[in-house]
């Protein structure tokens, strides 16, 4: 044993904190406390990703896992007043839950067995060898947008489905619960307006920087998309911009933009000598950046739309989204 690993106390503390926070979230009586604890948990998990050498994941977890998800939860809290109406599931569900939890705990033993097993060399080697041919320097972006591009396309499709379903489900919701009711009423207009004037342009620049940096450093489409969606949400919350009904067609176009560009590029290169998704070496970088830009725009619009939930209804003074 080459001496105690200096990070051991930090690791143990963080691991315990994570499990304790998870238990706290699930056991919290008060819904508001549950959401706040959840956001804290999201940030701690981001910290854990940094510790385990995964900066990109930490960025994504903080921006999307804690940020956007937290905002969604808080937006939903406004609707959930009063006691819970849902009945507790029956005993059958408890027994099945115990059974399935048992399967998971049994697999704890498997983890220990695996931990002592020889370490597989994983895919680090092939990624390193093929990185130069992938058109980008940063490994994660290369995997996301070139080696496993099919996964990423389907992930963007999942987001697209989410916004279609949310718009279909929320159609009938009364505008009364519109979270973006605008701040003027509580006399905080100037504060928010001031902040917006200062922070939003900076955030847009930051988002674009994140997108660009993705090629050679941690960053990329998803993280940039999350930041830009935050800009969109703040812009509407601060009343700087109000989406109207005629924006709906544009919004649908932007939602589909990311997936459309991705598909057209994947099929386009497939027409040539290579197979689908096989970007020609010299064109790889521009193609990837084009895809990333389109995907970022789509993600920003989609996440903002998910926050506001409903289509911009044409009649009443309701709120919509769009950066």
């Amino acid at each position: 044993m080459s001496g105690i690993d200096p990070m051991l106390p930090f690791d143990v503390a963080l691991a315990l904190a994570l499990v304790a926070l998870s238990w706290a979230v699930l056991a919290a009586a008060d819904r508001f406390a549950m959401v706040v604890l959840f956001i804290v948990l999201g940030l701690m998990v981001a910290l854990a990703w940094v510790r385990l050498g995964a900066p990109d994941v930490a960025l994504a977890e903080a921006a999307i896992g804690a940020g956007v998800t937290g905002a969604l939860l808080l937006a939903t809290l406004r609707h959930l007043r009063g006691p819970e109406a849902a009945p507790a599931p029956g005993p059958v569900r408890w027994s099945v839950a115990a059974l399935v939890a048992g399967v998971t705990v049994a697999l704890g033993a498997v983890v220990v067995a695996v931990a002592t097993a020889p370490r597989p060399e994983g895919l680090a080697g092939p990624v390193r060898d093929n990185l130069p041919a992938s058109g980008v320097e940063h490994a994660v972006t290369a995997v996301l947008l070139n080696f496993r591009a099919h996964d990423t396309l389907m992930e963007v499709v999942v987001l697209l489905i989410a916004v279609i379903v949310v718009w279909a489900v929320d159609r009938g919701l009364a505008a009364a619960h519109d979270p973006a009711a605008g701040p003027e009423a509580d006399g905080l207009g100037p504060v928010q307006a001031g902040y917006a004037r200062l922070a939003l342009p900076a955030a847009v620049v930051l988002g674009i920087y994140l997108l660009w940096a993705g090629a050679h450093a941690p960053g990329g489409a998803f993280q940039a998309g999350a930041v830009l969606s935050a800009v969109g949400i703040m812009a509407v919350l601060a009343g700087r911009w109000r989406p109207e009904a005629h924006h709906r067609a544009w919004a649908r176009a932007v939602f589909g933009l990311g997936a459309a560009v991705f598909v057209l590029v994947a099929l386009g290169v497939g027409l040539g000598p290579g197979v689908a998704y096989e970007y020609p070496p010299h064109l790889a970088k521009p193609l990837i950046l084009a895809i990333e830009a389109a995907v970022t725009l789509s993600i920003a619009a989609t996440l903002a739309a998910l926050f506001f939930g409903r289509e911009p209804a044409p009649v009443s003074r309701s709120r919509g989204r769009r950066p």
Partner: peptide, 12 residues
């Protein structure tokens, strides 16, 4: 068919 031409372990 290897998507993107990368082959099994790396690509899909």
């Amino acid at each position: 068919m290897a998507l993107g031409g990368w082959g099994a372990p790396l690509g899909i």
